[in-house]
């Protein structure tokens, strides 16, 4: 019984971390059709912002939940103005440019902060489930993933800004004739996606090894989740994270981490073969 609860918590944490690391990518890819290969580096910048703020004496919660997303959001807006705005509709070019950007960010971070592992320790303790122990940080991550999804849903569905954003993504020319400035909306959306990546990086900082190259470990999973989920930002992300997180954690528990990853990737390949447009392309078509 206890072990079932513990494994259940692992699954929840697996799903929550997939939701968090993929959310920013889902917004940028799902809404703007930009393949952001620098997504992992946005996560890394969020983690660095958190670690550096904490070592400068800032409260860890404030660093994770405010400084990391705001900082990376600003970086995202600058990147959009200087690079991405020239690449809308040019899928391959955007991949090349963001790949270059990721190298620049990794190189720059290495130059400034060195290649050593930095980090902060987890701000919450552990708790006991029968004979087992788990980290309180796990339910906290799940809560944050839930809040983030709710916030995305709320903004997109019920606010004027969300409506405008969706309108611009659907038909920028029509939106422009109605008096919306698409360039500004693109910039804000890209910034928002980057901020979500920054938040994820901040939240991961206490449980990951923070190095300039850490993004590489997350980007493949984030892409699989987003592609598997399809174009619907919210439902695609949630369904794909749920499926892949569940498969990965259960497989890793029952076998070894190696097979956990292998089984996850096989599942992803089968899913894409059966549902080429992703889960949401089939089941949540046209939904948010």
């Amino acid at each position: 019984m206890d072990i079932a609860i513990i494994v259940g918590l692992d699954v929840v944490s697996g799903i929550a971390s997939l939701v968090l690391i993929s959310a920013g990518l889902a917004v940028i890819f799902g809404m703007m059709k930009i393949i952001n290969l620098a997504h992992g580096e946005f996560l890394m910048l969020g983690a660095y912002a958190t670690v550096l703020s904490v070592s400068a004496g800032v409260n860890i919660w404030f660093a994770m939940l405010v400084i990391a997303p705001v900082f990376v959001g600003l970086v995202g807006m600058i990147v959009e103005r200087c690079l991405i705005q020239f690449l809308y509709g040019r899928l391959v070019d955007s991949m090349l440019a963001t790949w270059g950007l990721s190298l620049v960010i990794v190189g720059g971070t290495t130059m400034i902060f060195g290649n050593t592992i930095v980090g902060v320790s987890s701000p919450l303790g552990g708790f006991q489930v029968g004979a087992y122990q788990s980290s309180l940080y796990t339910p906290f991550l799940a809560l944050m993933a839930l809040l983030l999804m709710t916030a995305v849903f709320g903004v997109m569905r019920f606010t004027r800004a969300g409506l405008i954003a969706r309108a611009v993504m659907q038909n920028p020319d029509m939106a422009a004739t109605l008096g919306v400035n698409p360039a500004r909306v693109y910039m804000a959306t890209f910034g928002l996606g980057a901020a979500m990546s920054g938040l994820a990086g901040g939240l991961l900082a206490p449980i990951a090894g923070v190095v300039p190259t850490m993004g590489a470990a997350f980007i493949a999973k984030a892409f699989i989740t987003v592609v598997g989920g399809g174009t619907s930002i919210l439902w695609g992300l949630i369904s794909a994270s749920g499926l892949f997180g569940f498969i990965n954690q259960i497989a890793a528990f029952l076998t070894t981490p190696v097979f956990g990853e292998v089984i996850l990737f096989i599942a992803a390949i089968i899913l894409i073969r059966l549902l080429p447009t992703g889960i949401s392309g089939r089941f949540f078509k046209g939904r948010l």
Binding site: G119, A220, F253
Partner: peptide, 30 residues
Amino acid sequence: DVTNFGPSISRIQAAEPDLLLSAMVGGNHT
């Protein structure tokens, strides 16, 4: 490139060892 050790930590607890011997390498394993 493994970064999430939750399931493995559960496995280790389930095995109830007296000690853990580690030859983990690199930043992610930290």
